[in-house]
Each structure stands twice: as C-alpha cells, then as structure tokens.
Design a binder for these strands. Structure first.
Lengths: 202, 202
DNA sequence: GTCTATAATCGGATAGAC
DNA sequence: GTCTATCCGATTATAGAC
C-alpha cells in the first residue's frame, strides 16, 4: 500500500517555528533574534530551524509575510469611507492601522520589520517597499484628481506620522500614547492625516 | 624639573575614539557597533578603547551626551517665537529640529540613540528621558494655561510626529521626505504640530 | 599611552546518526 | 523529522609587556 512509511504531513513544528520567529524578530529585531532562541521558543532543536528554512535570512523573509494583504485592507477602507462620508479618510486610516496592530499576528511582523530596518539594509528595503504598497498607492488614488505630483510627498508625510505612532506606542512605550485608547488616538491624529491627504501644504 | 617624563596631557586619541563611537553607534545602533570597528575608525587598537572608557556601555553613555542642552534650545525657540508672532511655535519647533539635525555632532548621537532604542532596553529609557526633557517640559509651559491635564498627551503626539520625521528622513531614507528641503518640511508639518499644541483633539 | 596575546562566550551553519 | 556533535568566525574584555 502507498500508506506505508512515515506520514509526510505536518506535525505543526514548522508553524511553531515560524510563530516563535515572529515573536523573536518583533522583540529583538533581525540581529538580536537568534536561531537558538527561536528554536527554544518553539521547543525544538536549533538544527531543525535550519532544516526547514535554510538560513536565518530566509526564515526572516518567511516570518515577515503578513497574514493580510495591505492593498485589500486599504481598498476596504476606501469603500467604507465612500459609504459613510461623515468619517474622513484620514480618520479611517488611523483607525484601521490601530485595529490591525491589535492583532498579534499583524503587529509581530510589522514591529519586527520596523526594528530590523534600523540596522539591516535588507530589512530597510523591505519596509520601504511595504510602505509604498500600503500607503502610496491608495493616497495616489485619492489625490491624483487635484495635484498628481504631490502624491509621493503626501504619502511620505503620512508614513512619517503613522510610523511615528507605532514607534512611540509600541517600541518606546511612551506613556500617554501607549496607554491611550483607540478612539482617543483616532480623534487626535486623524485630522492631521486628513491635512496631509488633501490640505494645503505650503 | 617637573617636566621630565611623558606628557600626561591629551594626545587627541580619546576624542578621536569618542567621535568614531558616535558615528558607529549612529549608523549601526548599540549592538551593531563593535569596539573593534570603533577603534579601527579612530585608527587605534581596540584595547585602547577599553583603557579609556572601560566597558562598551560606558562608552555608549559617553558618546550619547549631546553637545547642546535641549532645554536651552527650546527656551531660545520660545523666546524667538514671542518676538515674532507671525511664526507659530509648532513651525518653529520643526525648523529647530531640522536645523539641529543638520549638524553631524547632534544628528549622530540622536540617531544612535534612536537606533539603539529599538533593541536595547537601556537605550529606550535614555531616549524616553530625553524626549520628556526636550518636548514635555516646553509643551507644558505653553498649554498649562488652557488645559493643564492634556500636556503629556499633547507632548507625546508631538514626539510621535517628530520622531516619525527623523525615522523616515534619516533612518529609512523615504524618498520624498529624505530629499525635501527644510522649508518644505516646515511648511508641511509645522501646522500639524500647532494643532497638537493648542488645537481641539476631540 | 599603546600594543600583543589570549581568555571566555556566543552566534550561524553543517554532517550525519537515528 | 528530529537530534547530537562540532566547526568556525566574531565579539567583549583582561593581563601584561614595552
């Protein structure tokens, strides 16, 4: 019978390693996360990590794959905004980001990428690419009616505020902004994003 | 004569090591900067670094000392603003930050601290302390007339935007924001800081 | 003040047994 | 699929000669 021999299927270890990797990269960044610590966190031998993922770089790339598609989330936000005009797009963007970051599965890779981008050129490129995909594209869709050329600049400004929010809230744990509720932050920051989106920047 | 023997004075090496340390910490963060690279950058033997500064931690603390006193800079900005009311405080804060960061001696330690704060708990504490001193105090001085309790939250929001600016401009090198001129950024971001300072956040 | 030599540790990666 | 054993490079830090 073809059923003889060991099952080729999953025993869950592969996923456990990826989970542990996400946590380690999120907390310590690329350099600070060690294969040994990742293996230990998954309850397996370090050699197994290499067995499944080859090198540390490849494991990092695998771990940083977001479980959501940025462009889909933004599309949903856009659709929602056009249905409820009382909610501005900037407000909605901040609310969406904060909501996504409350999920461990999204926040982990994102913070890992952010931390790693500080010291690794490769991670910097990955983060830049992600930002472009997640922010520039939808912003361009909104602004290309008024002033097409300003879209990249507007998107960068938005990125600076949104990344600054993640930085102070999750990485630095800056008192009031780390303990503030979602609604509070949305109300405080949303209008500033709106200004970057459609306001006069001169 | 008391002039016999080797001069006890400075041969410049100590300062050269500190300079090299600032550059290395700025570029690679605490973990990424190695004593060896710092020594090499200063053209001396690694053992000398230990001879002068003891441990890597002590060298880091010495290298991160800013050559300017944050509170003094802010005081100057406040005084300047009250003399020329056409320039808003938020605009002036952004301009001051960008001007300071153009000096290698200020930008180096600052970026080093920012990079290191991503992975080192000790550096995180240092950066938090610095932010509080540099931003919270002056903000409180401006807002305590209107709504005393909101000062820490307002200061944190300002920190999120200012740190986000440093992050995208210098660490990530995000296209349009990295190549933008100082005036352009001041005009774009200043008003948003003003809103965090005195606007309605609800 | 400056360097050589070396101790002690830790990291990624591989070979190969089971 | 999983683990043991091991190699090899890099790092901080110290002892001590000159």
């Amino acid at each position: 019978m073809s059923r003889a021999g060991r099952r080729s299927g999953d025993s869950g270890t592969r996923a456990a390693i990826l989970d542990s990797a996400r946590r380690q990269f999120a907390e310590h960044g690329y350099d600070g996360a060690t294969i040994r610590a990742i293996a230990s966190g998954a309850g397996v031998d370090p050699a197994l990590v290499h067995h499944f993922y080859g090198t540390k770089e490849r494991l990092f790339a695998a771990a940083m794959q977001l479980p959501v598609i940025p462009s889909e989330v933004i599309s949903a936000a856009l659709a929602d905004t056009s249905r409820r005009p009382e909610v501005t797009l900037g407000t909605h963007m901040v609310a969406s980001a904060l909501a996504l970051w409350e999920s461990e599965e999204v926040r982990g890779p994102f913070l890992g990428l952010l931390r790693s981008a500080m010291t690794s050129e490769q991670a910097t490129a990955m983060l830049r690419e992600f930002i472009t995909e997640a922010i520039l594209a939808p912003v361009a869709a909104v602004t290309n009616d008024t002033d097409p050329g300003s879209a990249p600049f507007r998107a960068s400004l938005i990125a600076s505020q949104v990344l600054g929010l993640a930085l102070t809230r999750y990485l630095l744990g800056l008192g009031p902004i780390a303990s503030a509720g979602r609604d509070e932050l949305v109300a405080a920051i949303g209008p500033n994003i709106d200004r970057y989106l459609t306001g006069d920047l001169n």
